[in-house]
Simulated assay, not measured.
Amino acid sequence: MENTLEFEGPATAQACSENLSAVEDAIYVIGGKWKLKIIIVLQDKGNIRFNDLQRNIPGISARVLSNELKDLELNGFVKRVVHADQTPVIVEYISTDYSRTLKPVIIALSQWGKTHKRKIKEDF
């Protein structure tokens, strides 16, 4: 089976430009060192508090995590839930249904990453 990218419509300069723009938009929203890691942990763990989330992502600082969560919340990937009726106040983060639409992308990236790692090891 041949591995080719199939895009909607004929391969025109306009279609190529639109596809590049769409990929650029996606990378802008979920790109960087931490965003996908945060999304993966949230999808895996469900409701999770800030410190637990930080413990599950080695190397991320509290400041960076806080900023990334704000960005992800603005883009609809994360919901921040404040339980003000409890003492102390508890804040939890959960992945949204929209965030879960990334699951096939994450699985594909994971599979590709494993294949790539094997290829690199074989080449050396």
Rank of each mutant, 00 (worst) to 15 (best):
G113K: 07
D123P: 04
R63K: 09
Y98F: 14
S110V: 11
F77T: 03
Q54W: 01
A11F: 12
N19S: 11
T101G: 05
A13K: 12
I30W: 01
I39V: 07
G31Q: 05
D71Q: 12
Q111A: 15
Q14R: 14
K45P: 00
K121E: 05
I27A: 07
E122L: 10
L36D: 01
P104W: 09
A15T: 15
W34G: 02
G31Y: 04
G9Q: 06
V41M: 13
R49Q: 09
E24D: 08
P104C: 03
L102K: 07
L109P: 07
V64R: 03
H116K: 14
K79M: 08
S95A: 13
I30T: 03
N19W: 03
I39T: 01
Q43P: 04
D52I: 09
V64P: 00
L42A: 02
T4Q: 13
E24G: 07
N51F: 10
I39G: 00
N56H: 15
L42D: 04
I60N: 07
K70F: 06
V89M: 13
I48M: 10
I48G: 05
M1P: 04
L102P: 08
A108G: 09
V105F: 13
I48A: 02
C16S: 06
A11W: 05
I90P: 05
V81F: 08
I120E: 03
D85K: 06
R118Y: 10
A11S: 04
A84H: 07
V41P: 00
I40A: 05
V78P: 05
V29Y: 03
F50H: 07
L20S: 02
I60S: 00
K35L: 06
E122T: 05
F50A: 03
M1L: 11
N3M: 09
K33I: 10
G113C: 08
L53P: 04
F77I: 06
S61D: 00
I48T: 12
I57A: 00
N75P: 02
T96C: 07
D85Y: 03
A22I: 13
N51S: 12
Q14K: 12
S95V: 10
C16W: 08
K33P: 01
L20M: 09
Q14T: 11
V89N: 02
E122C: 02
K121F: 13
N56F: 14
F7L: 14
N47W: 00
E73W: 10
K121V: 13
Q86H: 01
V81C: 00
E6C: 11
D71W: 11
